[in-house]
């Protein structure tokens, strides 16, 4: 029997995958990593991309993660996947949005069209498109 390593892929909203694998590939922040059983302890941030899990039958399973954390111990790989597309400026925009809503709701004003808000939405849409494009390239 081939050597295996346990793989857990979990997100905040639920478990995505759990099982044994002979090899795991992921897009870490400094480049793609391949993790074989008994890999040394390792921790890294993940970039949006594919996580491939090769099981004992040699079949590959693909999971798309929009970022997150990768934790490796000799017999265990854990992918803490983000469910949202994260980037500093997007987070900032979300924070501003939450603030604005609070102010608006307290002042009782109706929302007006705001240039800043439109820009934020545009940035979000672009980031999502980019992630989708990446995914397509990887699959194709």
């Amino acid at each position: 029997m081939a050597m295996t390593i346990h793989v857990d892929i979990v997100s905040a909203e639920g478990a995505i995958h759990s099982g044994l694998a002979t090899m795991v590939y992921a897009t870490a922040e400094l480049g793609e990593v391949g993790i074989a059983p008994r890999h040394t302890a390792f921790i890294s941030r993940l970039k949006p991309g594919d996580v491939r899990v090769e099981n004992e039958q040699g079949e590959q399973e693909h999971f798309y993660v929009s970022g997150g954390m990768l934790e490796v111990q000799p017999h265990l790989v854990t992918v803490l996947a983000d469910t949202a597309i994260r980037a500093a400026n997007l987070d900032e925009a979300a924070a501003l949005d939450a603030k604005r809503r609070a102010e608006e709701s307290l002042a009782g004003q109706t929302a007006q069209f705001e240039y800043a808000k439109a820009q934020v939405e545009l940035a979000e849409a672009i980031a999502q498109l980019r992630a989708i494009e990446k995914l397509r390239k990887m699959k194709g």
Binding site: A12, E13, A84, R86, A94, A95, A102
Partner: peptide
Amino acid sequence: EVLAQVTHLGDKPHIEDLIGPIKV
């Protein structure tokens, strides 16, 4: 003093909607 707010998360709340207020 309300610094941030989020409403209408629905039955299936998503973490995306919470990122902003938490960051504030």
